[in-house]
Each structure stands twice: as C-alpha cells, then as structure tokens.
Nucleic acid binder design. Structure first.
Length: 424
RNA sequence: GGAGGGGUGGCUGAGUGGCCGAAAGCACUGGUCUUGAAAACCAGCGAGUCGAGAGGCUCCCAGGGUUCGAAUCCCUGCCCCUCCGCCA
C-alpha cells in the first residue's frame, strides 16, 4: 500500500508516476471521497467527544448523589446521530480502502519505460552459450528416458501442468534444492526457515496477492473460512514480521526457505503447455530480506548476486534484466529478472525474480522496527527473490549439460549431492 | 472429540462498569554520581489518526450486543495453555 498521506497531498503526481506502470489512478473519485471522509470523520469525532464529556459528567453527578434524569434525557438523541455518522464513515472508508488496496507500488526512477517484457533492459550477461555438434534436445525429450520425467502419469493422477519425476532426475531435482539452500545458508548468510504451505487471507493481503489476484491462487475451504496454498514462500516468510516491531539489533533479517509453490495459472492457458516450465505445482528456494529503509537498494543488488551465484556454480549461462514499468509486479518498486539460457528453446527464460518492495508490503503488514535515533517505530523495507526456481533450474541443467546420447553431465558442484555420480 | 484456564503496551504482568490509555517490574532514553563503566538514585517512555496549535478521536485478540458510559458484563469466532481420549 502506498502512503495515503502522499496520495492525499499530491494525487496528480502519484497518478503520473503510475502511468509508467500502466495503471490509471482515479484521481477525481479519490479526491471526492477524501473530501467526504474528512467532513464525516470530523462530525463523527466531535459527536464522540460530546458523548464522552456528557457521560463523564453523568458519572460525576451520580457519584455526588445528584439527580441525573435531566442529564440522561439530554444525551438521548446523541446516540442515534453518532450511529448514523459512524455508519456513513465506515461506508466511505470501505470505498477508499478499495481504491488504496488496488493501487500498485510506485516504480523506482531507474525503472525503464515500456509496455511489456519486450521492453525490459538487459543489465549484464554471464557465461558462454554451449555449442553442440549434434541437435540439442529439449528437457521433455531428455527427461523422457526411463520415464524419469512423466507428464502422462501426472495427468492421470491429477491433471495437466503437473509432473511425476523418478530415479536420477528426481534425485537431481532434490540435489538442486540442497545445493541452493546450503549455498544461501553457508555463503550468503541466510537463515533457513520452514513455513506452512497454506496461509490465511491476512497473510495474502499483507504481501498483496489479495485482494486483487485471487484468481491466481488455489483456495482450500476449511470449516467456515478458507486457507490458500502458497503461490510462493514469499507469503509466509515475509508475513513473519506482520504486526511486529523488530528490534534494530536483529536487522537485517535474511531468510531462505524451500517450499512448493501452487499457482492456478489462470491467465496462462495455452502458454508454455509443453514441459516443466509452467506448472501448477513447483519447488522454489526463496530469499527474503527485511531491512532498514536505507539498506534496501544495496540489499536488492546483493540478493540478485546471490541468485546469480547459484547459476555460476551450475555453469549455466544467464543474463540479468531490469523489468520495465509495464512488466513490473504489483508490489515491486524495481525488479531484476535473471534469465537462464535454454538450448532446447534457443532463448533465455526467467529463472529468478528479485524485487525491492520498499515499504509497500510493510505498510500493509504493519511491519516496523524501532529507530534508535528517533525512538519511534518506523516501517521496514521488504525484498524477495528466487534463488532459484527449482524446476526451471533442472530444465536448464538438463538442456545445457546434455550429451549426444541423451545423457547429462552432472555439474561438479552437484556431484557431492548425488553420491558422486558424474553422468546420468 | 471431552473438561478446564487464558489472550492487556517492545516484554512480563495488575486491573470485574465512570477516578483507566491502563499499576508495577524489565528493557530503552536522559540526568546525578564515577577517571571510565557497572551499581544506585532521579526523570522520561504505547500505537494510530485528525489538527497550524491547543487539543480531539480510536485502539486492552476479532466481530456483534447491553449501557448515558465497556479493558471490565453478554454472545459468536479465532488463537494459546493444561488434563483426558484418539492419532501420523
């Protein structure tokens, strides 16, 4: 959520900045509601004030043993007026919240203009693209050996966009997770955390998957309410600091978690239907940082480098891009995507996304720290980044390290996690 | 599933209808003392919101209700703890 004070004091400027993100902010509607809100709020509060003072005087008169019947009749119709004012105020606030919760974060000034992913700007490349003296296969063909990557069984068990992995491929998939976690823990200073794979509405509101993106989520009815399968561990991990005031000495908080992620992919029918690229269920190792505001931009650079380090270890060529305004996510002020080279598709594909949300999520979550200089609680900054999407990493390893006979060279860094096997 | 006990400020915890935004302690901040520190002593210290300010309003898990007035009484829900049963 954006700071309502900033929106109130300068709605046109906010609207102008949001144009970059292809969002039309309803300035006129907002301002007219604000005028009403202010008027009704002032009226409500003065009525409350009146009621409070009168109630106090009744209490005093009663204590003094005086007759209070006339005082009671004076206060009679105050209650109804107050009820009406309160109801009117609540109604206006609901409308204002609807607007405010639907406004995306402001893009950072570095963020390039642009409509879509075609306008994203490349920052750097790493690695040399592999060359093959044979026709490289894609991961679906490579995984088909011994039914190690089995989409048909998954379709039988559940439906489309799921997979069954078996044998060495399943082991490599698991090995990748271990490598990622160990690297983030031992080399990058993250704290491992295990979290629920289902969350409540409040958590999803906090990180801003709700109320706007409900159709992307799997909902699980539970008694009178609903739980939701997490679309990313960003949700449970970031919400650790919801409604908390974090001691300054504990900052920065750096968490890494391995979880499955569940996405309905409602808006992606027909897209990436082949293979492992876009599934309803996939594994991801996530990095979350909760930092002082002054540290968040440096943290974004570091987190991106942490994700890149995994690709370097796996000897996978990649490039880093800055998302343009039109491609930027709802909560993000700036996002670096890392795209890995996939020989089977002959192009770079997203494998990580690292974002700084500034205080956007923190404001929704009331996630604060106590600033020792001011002595006051202030909003934190939150960042999240994939380090990395495991399924897509598996795809990249298979395709980049394949041999003519369809076998795969296991990257040296992964071999200890696979019992020393060098080729699968 | 059954029985009982709870949810109060950063933390612990008192508070059963008005004198309570809320005792006390811890933590924190400032001061006295000290070469310095610790200890001791003194003082300050919840959050949000409206307002130029004075000050107002809201918040004692959440949502309803009773009342002129609710942290306090009633109802519903959520969560935590103890015991019993069941169980991976």
């Amino acid at each position: 959520m954006l700071d309502p004070k900033i929106i109130r004091s300068n709605p046109e400027q906010v609207a102008a900045q949001l144009v970059k993100k292809k969002y039309v902010f309803p300035v006129a509607e907002f301002e007219s509601l604000e005028v009403q809100r202010r008027e009704v709020q002032v009226r409500t509060e003065s009525l409350q004030s009146e009621r409070n003072t009168r109630s106090k005087s009744i209490g005093k008169a009663k204590a003094a043993g005086e007759d209070i019947t006339s005082l009671l009749s004076d206060v009679n119709d105050l209650g109804t007026q107050l009820e009406e004012a309160k109801a009117a105020l609540a109604k206006i606030n609901v409308q204002l919240d609807d607007i405010l919760l639907g406004v995306p974060n402001l893009p950072h000034e570095d963020v390039p203009e642009g409509e879509s992913e075609d306008d994203n700007v490349e920052v750097r490349r790493w690695g040399t693209l592999p060359t093959f003296d044979f026709d490289p296969q894609d991961h679906v063909a490579l995984g088909n050996r011994d039914s190690a990557m089995d989409f048909e069984s998954a379709a039988k068990l559940t439906g489309s966009r799921f997979v069954v992995l078996q044998g060495k491929i399943a082991r490599m998939h698991r090995a990748l997770i271990q490598l990622m976690l160990d690297t983030h823990i031992n080399e990058h200073g993250y704290n491992e955390i295990y979290v629920p794979y289902m969350v409540n509405r409040d958590s999803l509101m906090g990180t801003s998957q709700l109320p706007k993106f409900e159709e992307d989520l799997f909902k699980v009815p539970f008694g009178e309410r609903d739980y939701y399968l997490i679309p990313t561990s960003e949700v449970p991990v970031t919400n650790m600091v919801r409604d908390e005031i974090v001691e300054e000495s504990r900052l920065p908080l750096k968490f890494t978690a391995h979880t499955p992620c569940f996405r309905s992919e409602a808006g992606a029918s027909g897209k990436d239907t082949r293979g492992l690229i876009r599934q309803h269920q996939f594994e991801k190792v996530e990095m979350i940082q909760v930092v002082k505001p002054e540290d968040s931009w440096q943290a974004l650079e570091n987190m991106t480098a942490n994700a890149e380090n995994i690709l370097k270890k796996l000897e996978l060529p990649y490039r880093v891009i800055t998302l343009c305004g039109g491609d930027l996510g709802f909560a993000a002020a700036k996002t670096y995507d890392i795209e890995v080279w996939l020989p089977g598709q002959d192009k770079y594909r997203e494998i990580s996304s690292c974002s700084n949300t500034l205080d956007f999520q923190a404001r929704r979550m009331k996630a604060r720290w106590r600033n020792s200089e001011t002595g006051k609680p202030e909003l934190l900054h939150t960042l999240n980044g994939s380090g990395l999407a495991v399924g897509r990493t598996l795809v990249a390893v298979l395709e980049n390290h394949q041999n003519a006979d369809g076998t795969i060279n296991v990257p040296a860094v992964l071999q200890p996690y696979m019992g020393g096997v060098t080729v699968i």
